[in-house]
């Protein structure tokens, strides 16, 4: 086992970063003040390049990204420190709900490189990305709903994308620079869990053209809220406005006896108390409904399939709150 970093098998070439060798451990970052001069830079093959500080200054890709994104009115991030709380599920619902209005143009960008869920949830699993001279065309699941995900680039859906951070950053940049999004009212970005490369990169790339804010998803129990606190701390450090917190999987109504129970008990007050603690809006709670999971597996829109369910009503209320937060 010499090296376990695999090359991309995608037909589309990926530009990661312009250093000849991978960054070493403790790398201060090629753009940082100490680039090339820190202790860990000794012996690094990139040292002379970093020390020369040639690329310092604005990233040459930034103007291109800005130009691409200038026709996108609102940019939203869906974040959570915790995995499996419903980021992708909520992103898909937000997408379907926005796109239900024929006058709106909506885009969904999935930057979860290792576990892209959007293609399946939107029922677009077998689709492929086409390139034209204006860039990569998003996959359209409705006339006014386009999406982009690494899931569309894998020759086999079971292939693992075993990439270190720098390579993931390269693809995120390409999603913003090379995708022909056209004119959009909303671009919703679905993220992986955590506070690492993907989050830093998407924030850096979008900063110049302005992010409307982040929607933070959590489940009610403290084990999950603990991680979401970290995400809120990240938003504060990165200067991202938090549009609000959604509590997902709160409460479960038994389909047999209609009795309600809390599977993930909100012992510390759940999403609501978290919102109060961080002084951000609470957008609402969505109950567990087995049909949500099923709709996501089938790639159907839960809101269209079961418009009368309590969960649908709760979701629509949350989405209305999101819209009013954006318009404020």
């Amino acid at each position: 086992m010499s090296s376990i970093v695999v090359q991309s098998q995608s037909s589309i070439p990926l530009v990661a970063h312009n250093l000849p060798a991978p960054e070493p451990e403790h790398c201060p970052g090629p753009e940082s003040e100490q680039a090339g001069t820190a202790d860990s830079c000794a012996g690094c093959p990139n040292q002379t390049i970093c020390a020369a500080k040639l690329p310092v200054g604005p990233d040459p890709d930034m103007p291109a990204i800005k130009a691409r994104l200038q026709n996108i009115k609102h940019k939203l991030l869906v974040l959570s420190g915790k995995g499996g709380v419903g980021k992708s599920t909520f992103t898909s619902m937000l997408g379907w709900a926005f796109a239900a209005d024929e006058n709106l143009e909506v885009g969904i960008m999935d930057i979860d490189m290792c576990g892209p869920s959007m293609p399946r949830m939107m029922g677009a699993e077998k689709e492929q990305i086409h390139t034209s001279n204006s860039g990569w065309s998003p996959v359209y699941v409705a006339d006014n709903l386009g999406m982009m995900s690494i899931g569309f680039m894998l020759p086999n859906p079971d292939d693992a994308v075993i990439w270190r951070g720098a390579k993931k950053n390269g693809l995120i940049k390409q999603f913003l620079k090379d995708v022909d999004w056209g004119t959009l009212d909303y671009l919703v970005v679905d993220t992986p869990p955590g506070t690492s490369d993907e989050h830093l990169s998407v924030n850096q790339c979008l900063k110049e053209s302005g992010i409307d804010g982040a929607i933070v998803v959590t489940t009610p129990q403290e084990v999950s809220i603990l991680d979401v606190r970290k995400e809120l701390d990240f938003c504060r450090k990165a200067g991202i406005k938090v549009l609000g917190i959604i509590e997902n999987m709160s409460g479960f109504v038994c389909p047999n006896c209609k009795g309600e129970s809390f599977i993930f008990a909100p012992t510390t007050g759940g999403g609501k108390a978290l919102a109060e603690e961080y002084k951000v809006p609470f957008l609402g709670s969505v109950p567990l409904d087995p049909r949500i999971g099923k709709s996501c597996d089938m790639g159907d829109s839960f809101l269209d399939e079961y418009p009368d369910s309590p969960a649908s009503k709760a979701i629509l209320e949350v989405i209305n709150n999101v819209r009013s937060q954006i318009e404020n």
Binding site: H26, G165, T195, D197, K230, A238
Partner: peptide, 18 residues
């Protein structure tokens, strides 16, 4: 502080695990 975020890129995470 239990609410502190660890905002690290890859090389730093690699070093910590090592």
């Amino acid at each position: 502080n239990r609410g502190d975020s660890v905002v690290w890129r890859g090389p730093k995470k690699t070093a910590m695990i090592r």
